[in-house]
Amino acid sequence: MSTDEPTSLFGRWGDIKGHERVVAALRRAIAAGRPHHAYLLLGPRGLGKTTIARAAVSALLCELGQSEPCGRCSACSKLTQSMHTGVLQVEPGGKANTITVDQIGEVQRQLAYRRLEGEWRVVLIHDAGLMNDSAQNKLLKTLEEPPDGTVIILTAVHPGQLLQTVRSRCQKLGLGVVPVDAVERWLVETKGAGPTMARVAAAGSRGIPGTALTLLDPEMGEERRERLTLLTRALAGDAGSIGEAVSLVDRDKLGCAEMLVLVQELLRDAIARSVGVEASLVHPDVSLAGPLATLPGRALADYALRIEDVQEKLTRNVHPGGLMEGLLLEISGA
């Protein structure tokens, strides 16, 4: 199993696109051996939260402690194969796509033990915003009295998904969007994209590297295009399209959250068009109709803000289909 070249790594700083300030802060704290006991990585899906979290895990556990994880030591080898006892990962699952109190309980049971190997132990909670309230309250105990040598990393799309008590006990690292031209260069240089595809995907990514990658994938790009078309019709008041959009996200919180982002993007484009700033459009090729084409910028901005409320409601066990229907009817009826 010992080759000279590291084959694949659990994570490395070099995999991260953009976010220089956040990464520098994390790297400094880890290199100094003084990471915060809990981090909350915040930002839209596809921005690189998981990539950053995984790089931090590798950096904490690599036995050589160089600027990049080495990929060759015993810890790096175990990490790559999911065999390191120093990493506990939690992600949402089940029909409800939530993180349950039992999952957090199991983490706490493991954390009660002394570390078996390595200087640090890392708990990685993916999509922490999908913890239900009782899971969050249970996690609170660990955040209040974190065991020595333990770092807890949470990723979430929206801070409102987490209880104030949970948020306040984490160091918050908000990820901003990456400049579109940087995404374009990254697609060409490291992802092997052709220049034309890279430009289209980068422009459509709104500065979110993960979205750009999705757009490069023809099938995913197609699905996104279909959803955009459906939404523009729904927002223009087409009852059949509203019904179809609602049934797409019914009982699917994740799908609903993704569609809300699309609605938000369309609203932003409508605002940009209403004030004549066409250069910064997210979807320059989508033509808008109905209220999105006629409402004044101020009214559109109010709706854009409303989406944040809806995103927060989505985390409070509200029926996703109902939420989406209410929003689409409200905007299209304006």
Partner: peptide
């Protein structure tokens, strides 16, 4: 099999 070195201590 899997490498003995990757077994927990």
């Amino acid at each position: 099999g899997l490498a003995a070195d990757d077994y927990p201590p």
